[in-house]
Design a protein around this nucleic acid. Structure first.
Length: 288
DNA sequence: CAAGCGTGGAC
DNA sequence: TGTCCAAGCTT
């Protein structure tokens, strides 16, 4: 049995949060939607949106029948609205290529729009119970500290999957728990800013702790400033279009008072290039 | 592969 | 206040 598996399993049995996607019978579609929403958006903000989404579109086929615009509006302020578009495309692909059933095979999941290494394996493991390494930012941090003796993870790579695979027990169900437990530990205890090592089930075998918490540097990219950025302009344009009850606006009616008109126009162009906005006859609207 | 991509809460 | 951070993905 790998070194971290038993303490992680024991800790998780007691400390795991009661989250909607962990309820028995939540379903592969619910799991898939939750994972899309959780890509870079905190758990607490996701939960209400997830429940509303699944109420409106209980199956991939239901979402596939909707207009992309409805998905983007329903996404509301979750951020990174391309995910709404990608989730809609994935639903169409599931309807057309998989008879409306969320695939179980990792390669089939990876072939869906908006699904990468993390999400594909999260669905295969948490929805279907198969045995794969699931590696998110929390897991990467836990492994960096406990195994590698580093304060922060290095650049993400395929090595991360191998590192987690080495920690998985042979049994499918136990492996799924270890995957979930590593993520949960990173979210609740082995946190980025102030880790609570006194509460950590791995403290006794943590390489970083044993070394005296050295500052090993931080390979992570710094996040660009948001205030005044193109991203902010894109967000403002899309918010205006989401909230437009007529569902189509003349281009010169969108953010006429934005401080930087060139930036606003650049934002609109890039949203059109991304397929988040359609421009036709001088009107802007969400994609139909 | 490094950069670009939203939004809001915590400190 | 500004900075950091959050179950990543695509190009």
């Amino acid at each position: 049995m790998p070194a971290l598996a038993d303490p992680l399993i024991a800790w998780y049995a007691d400390a795991a949060r009661d989250l909607p996607w962990r309820r028995p019978g939540f379903g592969a579609w619910g799991t898939l939607v939750s994972e899309f929403m959780l890509q870079q958006t905190p758990v607490a903000r996701v939960i209400p949106h997830l429940e509303a989404w699944l109420m409106r579109w209980p199956t991939p086929t239901d979402l596939a029948a909707a207009a992309p615009a409805d998905a983007v509006r329903q996404w509301a302020n979750l951020g990174y609205p391309r995910r709404a578009l990608w989730l809609h495309r994935a639903a169409v692909e599931i309807r057309d290529r998989h008879d409306g059933v969320v695939p179980r095979d990792v390669d089939a999941l990876l072939a869906l729009t908006g699904i990468g290494d993390y999400t594909a394996r999260a669905v295969a493991v948490f929805a279907y119970g198969d045995r794969h390494p699931v590696v998110d930012t929390n897991t990467r941090r836990v492994l960096a500290r406990a195994v590698d003796g580093r304060a922060q993870p290095g650049a993400p790579g395929k090595r991360d999957l191998a590192a987690m695979a080495a920690q998985l027990p042979a049994d499918d169900a136990a492996a799924a728990v270890v995957n979930a437990a590593a993520m949960e530990l990173g979210a609740l205890v082995c946190t980025a800013r102030s880790p609570r090592c006194e509460d950590c089930p791995l403290a006794g075998r943590c390489t970083w702790r044993a070394a005296g918490y050295p500052d090993t540097g931080d390979a992570r990219r710094k996040q660009a400033r948001y205030e005044g950025s193109d991203r902010q302009a894109r967000g403002a344009v899309l918010k205006r279009l989401r909230e437009d009850t007529a569902h189509a606006l003349p281009q010169d009616a969108v953010l006429p008072d934005w401080p930087d008109a060139r930036q606003r126009d650049r934002a609109i162009d890039s949203l059109v290039a991304d397929g988040l906005v359609e421009a036709e006859d001088g009107l802007l609207r969400l994609p139909r």
